[in-house]
Design a protein around this nucleic acid. Structure first.
Lengths: 358, 358
DNA sequence: TTGTATGCGTTATCAC
DNA sequence: GTGATAACGCATACAA
């Protein structure tokens, strides 16, 4: 599948009636056709019917390109997704859930969803997408806490361009965002483990460039502090949210298992990787330790024992992000930062048979 | 998240230099600017540099909308995805894999990917998308064998509009498509089971509206016939490719398990549903029966025992579909129907401890 | 309630 | 090599 350049072919075969043709057939002016189709201004019912009939006869369809050009609005909302060759992020529960939500909301408003893959190597220039008029607003997924990213978003923000971040919040920057209450979710998960008598809880975190990683770390620590125990920082590990990284970490964690009675993982995939890796070392969920994941992706109920996990309303977050961008676009007042609640879904992975360790 | 209508806000804050401004500053005509930016026609190097400098000074960026309008090409390829409320198909390995592939290929060619959700209730009108000039080509995912769908695709085909189906082939219709060798994949999977001594193999199929379901059925039957055994049609069941349907079918299948020694499922999710359902009835993969799934989605290696599965090159199919549409668009000759090979990935789920049944 | 006229920012086809 | 200019199909302010 080679590289190629954009070339054009004439659109043949489709007879494209233009507004002029309809006007002629209906015996009215072109402006009237527009009025009917855009439902704008006063119009005599009789005229309207005449126009509609003529349009139907000619199989007229307004040219979206010309409309966009005339109004200066593309009708597209860009969704920026980080692209890593080999890893198709899109297939993660995480991205696809958000994307579906965005699609649902945009569909209601006659907006198109333009997917834009952003390679981490190419320089980002979100503003340019607006300047070229390709998009009217954008939603940024998978943003990280790095300087360049922040600068780009700052530009968007200062120019008051309609944008929204999803699942990423920058400390000290009042950017538009829709996020979930990850600190709380993490707090709940770890608190549940503590309540159930697990005291030595390892935490497998993801990269700290993501605010949700930081927030989960805070939740983990808060839960300990809440019961008057100093958080065991020696039990905090870091993966990269892939199942593979969970497997890798299991090698590091296995030697410590005699002193660990539960594990909380920053997402389900790492949790499952751990589960698989540790079982090779003879440690089994439900027998030797309790396990809680995060995201409540569909795999949580596919593994044995089923995984307790924190559900994140990804679909709703996507919907809300889209709604927010559309509101910004229309000049409506919007709440700058939204936070949706998460829900702890209890499953078998927190039942442990053996005597509790200390 | 309410309904809303598309409204417009003026794009403020971004100073949009136009071609005219650049021309003025560079002291050349507007046509020259276009020549430089489109790399067309002869141009003196000196002039070119002058133009580029002026463009940079003014931060000039050609207006994509105007370009599209002038050329009559949107630069968008539409990807049509069936939309079912509640079920977010996008999150399936299947759709997201294909979509990623499409995105990769389109990115290389400077085309945009326009995602269009198609509710099964709304009437389809693919041609209209072209007439409105929203898209220059389209890729149809998840098409089913129904009359309306076929008619729509026929229209696209007759009008020679650039389109491509993915993973769906219509018997007797020479539509553009990229598909995988499902008959072969199924044949291989069932043959492997037969070779290993399993004789009573149940087949859990998906809806027959999908050609790949039909093909897998054929592969299943062929594998039996190939070893001179009449395919046991009483062991063919039908789900809907969801894990839930696998669980449901397990109730139906459990009573027959004394006469079944292996199961082949049309996808991994149903396989896992079955696995879960049957274990509640006391039948366990690796002890009481062998199991093979299909798709080789990431969940295949998350369950215990890991699932043998047929890998489908979804990413490559997406890439190829995109490439095909772009070639049609550019008038290049294209192979009408492509079929990519599949690969059987062997994992633990086909090792069975107990004595073979007959 | 309807018609007229202008502009949107390019591309592309001529001339020179 | 370069400049002028006619499309492109619609929205919309203004006039009637």
């Amino acid at each position: 599948m080679g590289r190629c350049t954009r070339v054009h072919k004439v659109l043949e075969g489709i007879s494209l009636a233009k507004r002029k043709d309809v006007a002629k057939l209906a015996g009215v002016s072109e402006a009237t056709i527009s009025r009917v189709f855009n439902n704008v201004g006063p119009i005599r019912e009789e005229t309207k019917q005449k126009v509609l009939k003529a349009a139907k006869t000619l199989n007229y369809q307004p040219n979206a390109l010309a409309q966009s050009f005339a109004t200066g609005k593309s009708g597209n909302i860009g969704v920026i997704i980080p692209y890593l060759p080999k890893v198709h992020l899109l297939s993660t529960h995480y991205f696809s859930g958000i994307l579906s939500g965005i699609g649902i909301q945009l569909g209601k408003c006659q907006y198109n969803l333009l997917v834009m893959f952003q390679s981490p190597h190419e320089p980002k220039d979100y503003v340019q997408l607006f300047r070229s008029q390709k998009i009217d607003g954008c939603i940024i997924l998978g943003a990280k806490n790095d300087e360049q990213e922040i600068k780009e978003i700052e530009r968007l923000h200062e120019l008051k361009l309609p944008y929204c971040l999803v699942n990423q919040t920058y400390e000290g920057y009042p950017f538009h965002s829709v996020d979930a209450k990850h600190t709380e979710g993490s707090f709940q998960a770890v608190s549940l483990l503590l309540e159930k008598g697990f005291k030595r809880i390892a935490f497998i975190n993801g990269p700290l460039e993501y605010s949700n990683s930081m927030e989960r770390l805070k939740g983990y620590r808060d839960a300990y502090l809440n019961v008057g125990i100093e958080p065991p920082s020696e039990l905090v590990f870091q993966g990269n949210y892939s199942r593979t990284s969970g497997i890798q970490l299991s090698t590091e964690i296995a030697p410590l298992m005699s002193n660990i009675d539960a594990i909380f993982s920053g997402n389900d995939r790492m949790a499952i990787g751990l589960m698989q890796g540790l079982s090779k070392h003879g440690y089994h969920v439900g027998e030797d330790y309790a396990l809680i994941g995060y995201d409540n992706s569909d795999v949580a109920s596919m593994v044995q024992p089923q995984l307790t996990s924190v559900q994140v309303p990804l679909l709703e977050m996507g919907e809300m992000a889209a709604e927010k961008v559309l509101n910004e676009l229309n000049g409506k007042s919007v709440v700058l930062q939204e936070r949706l609640p998460v829900t702890l879904i209890e499953r078998a992975s927190i039942q442990v048979k053996k005597e509790m360790r200390k």
